[in-house]
Design a binder for these strands. Structure first.
Length: 288
DNA sequence: CTGCAGGCCGGCG
DNA sequence: CGCCGGCCTGCA
């Protein structure tokens, strides 16, 4: 671990609130000065912005520039994608205006799998609380600016944790799911490192073999982790709501099936469907 | 007290 | 197959 800093020129699609508050991550929190601090796989990172620059500082076990480029998806041209998407219709144009600073993060695969298993039938404050307690109890401690932070526990660090210990952390009925998924990974029944070399549909099938991972969670993992399948369109209650309101207009939202939604998303948004999903989700969810 | 929150799972028709 | 009820917990 090493304290590092990095200052880069401001880029257009990069707003802290949009990135960290659009619902893709659980371990970033706003500081009193408006910056955000997060715990990531490689340590602790703080990000701040002004009109001209973006400032990163942190305690990381890797090069901060390399990390930032990967984590914040810097090589992708969001401006170009936004201009293409915004031409589709006025809804997309509006939602992009609302979430113009969103970038889709490349989060650690293991952490993303477990975090989204925890997210099932849950609410964000509780999800964040569970992940914090889990990390504090089993993760590695990292210091940054005189404060203690805890990395998300590795599969090995969770190897001997029992379901009742999970239950005590507030996991609820997800205790068994976490336990069994961790077992499968530790016993190498499922090798998540192989996912990086596999076809998207095959990864999805393997993900769904993990207890607690269904279609929605699998899609979130594909999009929000460093697997980064940008065309994947996760459908949760908010996305189905907004897609029905805008395009399908079924009087009974419950009767809309996900296949129909996915087809529309794929037709309209194609290879950028994942980002389109985030704009729509963030827009609809925040504005109610 | 009931409802519900970024679904999944198992059982049933 | 598609549909439906139940599920930990915490908070309104």
């Amino acid at each position: 671990m090493e304290r590092q800093e990095l200052k880069i020129d401001k880029i257009d699609a990069f707003e802290l609130r949009d990135i960290f508050d659009c619902g893709q991550c659980f371990r970033w929190n706003e500081e009193p000065n408006g910056s955000y601090t997060g715990v990531v796989k490689n340590g602790v990172l703080n990000v701040n912005c002004d009109s001209k620059n973006i400032y990163f500082k942190g305690n990381l076990n890797c090069d901060i520039r390399v990390f930032v480029n990967k984590y914040f998806d810097m090589k992708r041209d969001y401006e170009q994608i936004k201009s293409k998407l915004s031409k589709i219709d006025e809804y997309m144009d509006n939602s992009i205006k609302y979430g113009k600073g969103i970038r889709i993060l490349n989060q650690d695969l293991w952490e993303t799998i477990i975090s989204y298993i925890i997210s099932a039938n849950n609410n964000i404050p509780r999800i964040k609380g569970i992940i914090e307690r889990l990390s504090k109890k089993y993760g590695t401690k990292v210091e940054f600016e005189n404060k203690d932070y805890y990395l998300f526990p590795t599969p090995v660090q969770l190897k001997d944790v029992t379901t009742s210990e999970y239950r005590a952390l507030g996991l609820g009925f997800r205790d068994v799911r976490l336990f069994e998924t961790t077992q499968l990974v530790n016993d190498n029944k499922v090798n998540i490192e192989n996912f990086y070399h596999m076809k998207t549909t095959d990864i999805r099938d393997k993900l769904i073999e993990l207890p607690g991972v269904g279609p929605k969670v699998a899609d979130c993992i594909l999009l929000f982790s460093d697997l980064k399948r940008f065309e994947i369109f996760p459908i949760d209650v908010w996305v189905r709501r907004v897609m029905n309101d805008l395009y399908i207009k079924n009087s009974d939202e419950k009767k809309v099936n996900n296949k129909a939604i996915n087809e529309i998303a794929s037709e309209k948004f194609g290879e950028f469907a994942g980002l389109a999903q985030q704009y729509l989700f963030y827009w609809r969810r925040t504005l109610n």
